[in-house]
């Protein structure tokens, strides 16, 4: 079926591009020692954030990020029509408990680390479709909760592999509106699930790189834009290995990305001083960079066109143990000043 707002294979263009009105970001203590510390609203002093479990700590960060976004827009939660959120924990409990606290009509979403792009895409469609006037989009991850769920207890003394990434502790939220001032989401490319036979859950960057490459190539093909149309093309959390692989895969499709190509996973930490191996991962990686740094850069007028390509590995500990490959996805959203 050919619809007015869909162009090409997988891309949707918004007739009335929704506005990112305000954002809220909360980063963990380790992330606060990284080069982007200045770009976050709040840096925690303690991984527990005053709670008695890491799961509750993640939840409290997400609530804080949402409240910050609402405060920055001077709105109460009653003025928000929908809350779209997702995280990494089983049954997305961080998001659902946060939704209970905020008491905003809620749609839980799961896209692993691609959640921020999935949320922006869905929110933009709903706003552009005229179903809502204001939507809060949020995501979170916590190093200790993710490590425990996907790998080992936090105090387990196994060594990390050099291609492993470090799960970001943080939460990010953005308030999108039908009207207002701020950068706009003008188009979104929804990715297909890609399985390139990767099984190693310690090298997720490599598993996700093909999905990112497919989605980026598809966005260019669908829209007729090219890499030079953007100030910045930013993948989610590919990390060093995935980022190199993605560049190579795109070069094979004759898409050559230059200096304006980067990865959120390479930006959050100072990889010389902070021992995080291949870079950052987790839902909050793209969330913190997009709603922390990019949003501020748009406000300062430093950016005009950005393609944010958040990537997610959609496996579960069970699927991995049963020998399944790691299915991956990437969604792209075009944000313009």
């Amino acid at each position: 079926m050919k619809m007015g707002k869909k162009t090409g294979e997988q891309t949707f263009q918004f007739a009335n591009p929704p506005v990112i009105i305000a954002t809220g970001t909360v980063a963990g203590p380790f992330e606060g020692q990284g080069p982007l510390a200045e770009e976050f609203d709040l840096v925690l002093g303690d991984l527990h954030n005053g709670e008695n479990s890491f799961e509750r700590a993640e939840r409290s960060m997400l609530v804080q990020a949402c409240r910050l976004a609402l405060d920055h827009a001077s709105r109460g939660s009653a003025e928000v029509d929908l809350f779209l959120a997702g995280d990494l924990l089983n049954q997305i409990i961080s998001s659902s408990f946060t939704a209970a606290t905020l008491s905003i009509p809620y749609l839980g979403i799961y896209g692993a680390c691609s959640t921020v792009a999935e949320g922006l895409t869905l929110a933009s469609m709903i706003l552009d479709g005229g179903f809502a006037g204001a939507i809060l989009v949020a995501t979170s991850s916590h190093n200790a909760t993710a490590e425990r769920q996907y790998r080992y207890p936090t105090e387990y003394g196994g060594q990390r592999r050099p291609y492993q990434q470090w799960t970001v502790t943080g939460a990010a939220a953005a308030l999108l509106g039908y009207t207002g001032h701020g950068p706009r989401v003008t188009a979104a490319t929804v990715g297909k699930v890609v399985d390139m036979g990767c099984k190693d859950p310690l090298n997720l960057g490599a598993a996700m790189a093909p999905a990112a490459a497919e989605t980026i190539a598809c966005h260019f093909q669908d829209t007729g834009w090219d890499p030079d149309s953007f100030d910045l093309i930013l993948t989610g959390d590919l990390g060093e290995i995935g980022f190199k692989l993605c560049r190579e895969l795109l070069a094979e499709k004759d898409i050559h990305l230059g200096e304006n190509f980067s990865d959120c996973g390479l930006l959050i930490y100072d990889r010389e001083k902070q021992d995080v191996h291949a870079g950052a991962s987790g839902c909050a990686t793209a969330g913190l960079v997009a709603f922390g740094r990019l949003f501020r850069q748009f406000q300062r007028g430093e950016l005009t066109r950005v393609l944010l390509v958040a990537t997610g590995a959609l496996h579960s500990p069970t699927s991995f143990l049963q020998g399944e490959n790691i299915p991956c996805i990437a969604h792209a959203v075009r944000i313009e000043a």
């Binding site: 050099p162 291609y163 036979g197 090298n203 490599a206 290995i241 692989l245």
Partner: peptide
């Protein structure tokens, strides 16, 4: 693709 991954995986 798996061959490519091997190439980039640091030892």
């Amino acid at each position: 693709y798996q061959k490519k991954v091997k190439k980039y995986e640091p030892k």
